[in-house]
Design a protein around this nucleic acid. Structure first.
Lengths: 147, 147
DNA sequence: TACTTTTGCATCGTGAACGATATAAATAAG
DNA sequence: CTTATTTATATCGTTCACGATGCAAAAGTA
């Protein structure tokens, strides 16, 4: 059994990877009608919490690199969801702000988290375990981000 | 607090998505020297368990679409890790088999799961919770796959 | 002030991931 | 035995995701 640990069944990371992919897929019925993708939805979540943020802040909150977020924002600007203006104090910065369309979308997206949550609970028959999972995932994320 | 649930902090799926991405990043120090990516590593895990499988079986075991796996395998073939031969009974199938290099890599990869596991436990200070997480993630994966 | 370093963002190249579509082979239906 | 349908891959187009690199502005230093 020298290679026992190489079996796919023993891989926690594979489960995380798969669960994340399939969960993103579960957003499709809700995001497709809005014409946005899951990462774009995450950007909107960030901006709905606080409008007018530089690229760097958004990237940091999503644990993404700016070279991922920049093209994402360019596509979102093209779709009329956000505007990107030069920073006043620091002209290197690009301040991202919600457009009218981006602001209005909040109302349409209001129930998405609840819907997803219900769906997951219904599918798995679990709720408690997901709640318990959160601080552990947070520790993992924070720990891996340091490296 | 009408939009409370839209706060990023409340999103389980965002944590899954982020944890999965960062965990994949943690494989880099181990996979880069082997010249493979994480999804390619997963394909190797599948083939190390059982050599000579059609594309469809590999895709199914990884919960991926064949249009993701096909180019993945093409890159792996170009890298000399696998061979892709026409099926004998069913000529539509492409049987994927390990090359010498692919077989030998198993020995080099032997300790990767253990290393990652230790790293994660050390970073988070948790182990029990990850063990408990596994059947829940499996339920989630199975449930989402049906849809 | 002149020079160096850092920072914020953008660009480029590569590899996933997947919906849509194509194609050929196998299977089912007539 | 044809014809229709399904199945197994492949191809195409778009969107992430990220390492490497570029560039201009800001900050630090001599």
């Amino acid at each position: 059994m020298e290679y026992e640990q190489l079996k796919l069944d023993n891989q926690l990371c594979f489960r995380l990877y798969t669960a994340a992919r399939l969960t993103m897929g579960a957003y499709h019925p809700y995001l497709d009608p809005l014409g946005i993708t899951y990462p774009q939805y995450l950007v909107l979540l960030v901006l709905w919490e606080q409008d007018k943020q530089p690229v760097n802040d958004i990237a940091h909150k999503l644990f993404l690199e700016t070279n991922t977020v920049t093209p994402l924002l360019q596509r979102m600007e093209k779709a009329g969801l956000v505007k990107r203006t030069k920073g006043k104090e620091d002209t290197r910065q690009r301040i991202v702000s919600l457009s009218k369309k981006g602001i209005e979308m909040r109302e349409q997206a209001k129930h998405i988290p609840e819907c997803l949550s219900n769906e997951i609970i219904q599918i798995t028959g679990e709720e408690e375990e997901f709640v318990r999972m959160i601080p552990t995932l947070d520790k993992l994320i924070q720990g891996l981000k340091q490296q």
